[in-house]
């Protein structure tokens, strides 16, 4: 059963990834990105990480893709018409070859190890369990991330601050 789910979601995620790459108009690639993120969310569910799946959907699929669409719309999609490296075919093929090589290397490294199948505990990925660990073992990075978000807010405001009355967009946390 899990295999079937894995295949379905995996394929859709790959389609999403390809879509981001191929599509002409950035709006399409944004939507494909959304597909990719949602599929990854489901994969997390299959992997037993409920808490992450929920936060993935909210944070990524919800906030980040929306922000992308927001900016694309704001800029006006005509000026943002995409130019998929017209005329620079050499660099395109070069990068694809490089990418495939990279994949072979990493894929082999990753795949080579035979992982013992591990059965996760039932409440493995629940919010309560993850929360417990978050606040006990990982307190320091948690605080650091709060500083980081503060920096992001200041930065966004500074940059968006208006000579031209750009809409000051508060980043979604």
């Amino acid at each position: 059963m899990e295999l079937v789910l894995f295949i379905v979601f995996g394929l859709l995620a790959l389609i999403g990834a390809f879509g981001v790459l191929i599509s002409q108009k950035p709006v399409h690639s944004a939507l494909f990105l959304l597909l990719n993120f949602v599929m990854l969310g489901f994969l997390y569910l299959v992997l037993g990480a409920q808490f992450l799946a929920a936060s993935q959907l909210i944070v990524y699929a919800g906030a980040i893709v929306v922000l992308f669409l927001f900016v694309i719309m704001l800029i006006g999609s005509d000026t943002v018409g995409d130019f998929v490296a017209k005329g620079r075919t050499l660099s395109r093929y070069l990068s694809i070859i490089l990418g495939v090589l990279f994949l072979a290397g990493v894929g082999y490294a990753v795949g080579a190890r035979a992982f013992p199948p591990a059965a996760g505990a039932p409440d493995f990925g629940t919010t309560e369990a993850a929360g417990k660990v978050l606040f006990t073992q990982f307190l320091v990075p948690f605080e650091l991330v709060s500083i980081l978000l503060l920096v992001a807010m200041i930065g966004a405001i500074v940059l968006a601050h208006g000579v031209w009355p750009a809409p000051s967009r508060r980043p979604r946390e």
Binding site: V59, A130, L134, V145, L148, A152, A156
Partner: peptide, 21 residues
């Protein structure tokens, strides 16, 4: 998983700054 959660927060902050730029 907890690390992934932190990465999400970092990525969100990054998106905010990136789009502002």
């Amino acid at each position: 998983q907890v690390f992934v959660f932190l990465i999400m927060a970092v990525a969100a902050a990054e998106v905010a700054i990136g789009l502002a730029i």
